[in-house]
C-alpha cells in the first residue's frame, strides 16, 4: 500500500508535520484498519508450518534479534552483569550460538552493562523518558535520555505520551519524539507506543506513522508493564506501517515486539509475519527485535533439541 492522501515524495511528508491540523489530517487520512480482517490475517499467518532447516534458521535469527531485558525495581549490578554474560554467549556449551542483539536496562544500570559488554557486538539499550508511564515534564524526560546516552547507551527505548495521543494532541507527541531523537545523538531511538493503552488498530497505525515521521528508528509495541502487550494483530499493523513508510520514503525503519513473547513457536510465527508482511529485508536485527527475558531460554532449548534430537528441560539453561 502506498499513501496517496498527500503529495508523493518525502517533501510531502515534511509538510504533514507543519502544524497540528495537517498532522491530524494526514494520520486520519491513512486507510482504516478492519479489525476482524486484520485478526483473520494474523491467524492465517500463524498456520505456516516451519520445520527442519527453516526452523533452525529461524531460531538463530530470533536469538540474534533478542533485546535481553531486565526492567525490575530490584535490578542490581550483579543481575545486569550476569545478563550481559548470557547476552554475549547465550549457550556456553555451543559456541555456534549467536549473541543476542542488545541488553535492555534502566538508565542507572547502563554503565554496568557498558563495562560488561565491552568488546562484544551486543548493543546497550536503555529505557528512558520516565519509563514506563511517560508521565513527567519534557525536561525531565530529556534529562533521562541524556543521562543514558552519556553513560554509553547505544539505543534508547522511549515511551510516548499516550494521554496526549488519545486526547488528539498529535503535534505534542510528535515534538516530544523529535526532541528525544535530538537528545539521542547517534543512539538509535525505539519509540514505545504502548499499544495496550491505545487499544484500537486504527490508533496503532496512526501512532506508528507519528513515531516514524518524528524520526523513530524503531516502533515498539509495549513497555511490558501493561497487558495486552505484543499481539499478532498489533504486530501486523506495525509491520505494515514500516513497509508503507519504506515504500513512501525509501527508509527502512524497524519494529520491536515486546512483552508476553515467551516461546519459540510464537517467535517463529512473528518471523513468518515479518517475512510475508514487511518482507525479507526486515529479517535482521537492524529492523526487527524481540524485547524479552524468558524467550531466550526457550529458543536455546529448542535449538538444542534441533541439534541433538533431545529436549533437555529448563535445568540445562541458566536462569538470569
Amino acid at each position: 500500500m502506498t499513501i496517496t492522501s498527500v503529495a508523493s515524495g518525502t517533501s510531502g511528508l515534511s509538510d504533514v508535520t507543519s502544524d497540528d491540523a495537517s498532522l491530524r489530517r494526514f494520520l486520519h487520512g491513512l486507510p482504516g484498519v478492519d479489525q476482524v480482517g486484520a485478526e483473520g490475517r494474523a491467524v492465517a499467518l500463524a498456520t505456516r508450518s516451519i520445520k527442519t532447516t527453516a526452523k533452525a534458521w529461524a531460531i538463530d535469527a530470533a536469538i540474534g534479534m533478542v533485546d535481553l531485558t531486565t526492567l525490575e525495581g530490584s535490578d542490581t549490578p550483579g543481575k545486569v552483569r550476569s545478563l550481559c554474560a548470557k547476552a554475549v554467549r547465550p549457550d556456553p556449551s555451543d559456541p555456534s550460538t549467536p549473541p543476542v542483539a542488545a541488553v535492555c536496562v534502566y538508565p542507572d544500570l547502563v554503565a554496568t552493562a557498558v563495562q560488561a559488554l565491552r568488546g562484544s557486538t551486543v548493543q546497550i539499550a536503555s529505557v528512558a523518558t520516565a519509563f514506563p508511564s511517560g508521565r513527567a515534564s519534557l525536561q525531565t524526560k530529556l534529562a533521562d535520555v541524556r543521562d543514558a546516552v552519556l553513560a554509553g547507551a547505544t539505543e534508547i527505548d522511549m515511551v510516548i505520551d499516550r494521554g496526549a495521543f488519545l486526547a488528539g494532541r498529535y503535534l505534542q507527541v510528535f515534538d516530544e519524539i523529535s526532541a528525544v531523537k535530538q537528545a539521542c545523538g547517534t543512539a538509535h531511538l525505539k519509540v514505545i507506543l504502548e499499544t495496550g493503552e491505545l487499544v484500537t488498530l486504527d490508533s496503532v497505525r496512526r501512532a506508528s506513522w507519528l513515531a516514524l515521521l518524528a524520526g523513530g528508528d524503531f516502533v515498539k509495541t509495549s513497555t511490558g508493564k501493561i497487558s495486552p502487550a505484543a499481539t499478532p494483530p498489533v504486530a501486523l499493523i506495525m509491520l505494515q506501517a514500516v513497509r508503507d513508510f519504506a515504500a513512501r520514503t525509501g527508509e527502512v525503519r524497524g519494529v520491536k515486539l515486546a512483552g508476553g513473547i515467551r516461546t519459540t513457536k510464537e517467535a517463529v510465527r512473528y518471523l513468518v509475519m515479518v517475512n510475508e508482511v514487511a518482507g525479507p529485508r526486515w529479517l535482521s536485527p537492524h529492523s526487527f527485535r524481540f524485547g524479552a527475558s524468558t524467550l531466550l531460554n526457550d529458543l536455546l532449548q529448542q535449538r538444542h533439541k534441533l541439534t541433538t534430537g533431545a529436549y533437555d528441560g529448563s535445568d540445562y539453561v541458566s536462569i538470569d
Binding site: R48, S49, I50, K51, T52, T53, A54, K55, W57, A58, A61, L271, N275, E276, P280, L283
Partner: peptide, 16 residues
C-alpha cells in the same frame, strides 16, 4: 513467488 526468491534466507522447508 516467494519459494523462488533465493535472496531470502528464510526458505520454508517442505512440510508435507
Amino acid at each position: 513467488m516467494d519459494t523462488f526468491d533465493n535472496a531470502n534466507p528464510f526458505q520454508y522447508a517442505p512440510a508435507p
